[in-house]
Design a binder for these strands. Structure first.
Length: 213
DNA sequence: CTAGTGATTAAC
DNA sequence: TTAATCACTAGG
């Protein structure tokens, strides 16, 4: 008679995130983020992500070196990097690459798998179910990813936020393009999404600024 | 399209 | 110290 499993087999392996940010981004599509909050548990299936890397990626928060804010991106793979933007929103990344190498994947959008009632109660302004986690700040809000979730290990069963391996997404359903809202490195197609998902953000090109391209 | 909001950072 | 920037969302 099987007792409690020693390690949860459904969780994503850290190694899936440690080799390369683009491979990690594609690997994360179709996986499930499961988050426990005081009012219940919500799980979303990731349908849109963006890869960011360190020193050679001017669009990355880690491009200008390690600071108190981006420190998690410099640590080992599989930890949440949650940051505050535009005075009111949080966004969440999963750190990638080995300890000392900065990298991460921004969680841009997901489809609610469960529990829909808890999810709707958390985001009552969402008009359609597809809007619940459509966009990085909505996703973070739905899953309760704020400051106190910064740094948590999503590959550990005891963590309040966990990443579950999903059924593989067929390669012909994965689409790619430039990252959203990023002025730098506009030619780098490191946004990945599952074709046809109603929860994928509307495309908005990064603003072109004088002297940049 | 634009207002709203505040941490973070580079420049002074 | 100050000011610009910012991987965004909601409401017209």
């Amino acid at each position: 008679m099987p007792g409690k499993p020693r390690c949860d087999p459904g969780l994503l392996d850290r190694e899936d995130l440690s080799v390369d940010v683009v491979a990690a981004a594609v690997r994360l599509l179709g996986c499930t983020v499961e988050a426990d909050t005081p009012d219940g548990r919500v799980a979303v299936r990731l349908v849109e992500v963006e890869a960011y890397r360190g020193a050679d990626d001017p669009a990355s928060h880690s491009f200008r070196g390690r600071t108190a804010r981006n420190a998690v991106m410099f640590g080992p793979a599989g930890h949440l990097y949650v940051y505050f933007v535009y005075g009111m929103h949080f966004c969440a990344n999963v750190s990638c690459l080995d300890d000392g190498e900065p990298g991460g994947v921004l969680l841009r959008a997901g489809e609610v798998v469960s529990d829909l009632a808890v999810a709707r109660a958390r985001r009552p302004t969402a008009r359609r179910d597809a809007d619940l986690a459509r966009g990085p700040a909505r996703l973070a809000s739905l899953l309760g990813l704020t400051r106190d979730r910064n740094g948590v290990d999503v590959t550990t069963a005891a963590s309040p936020v966990r990443l579950r391996s999903g059924p593989p997404v067929p390669a012909d359903r994965v689409r790619t393009g430039p990252r959203v809202g990023v002025a730098a490195a506009r030619d780098v197609p490191w946004r990945f999404w599952i074709d046809g998902s109603p929860a994928v953000s509307a495309y908005r090109p990064g603003r072109v600024r004088p002297g940049a391209r």
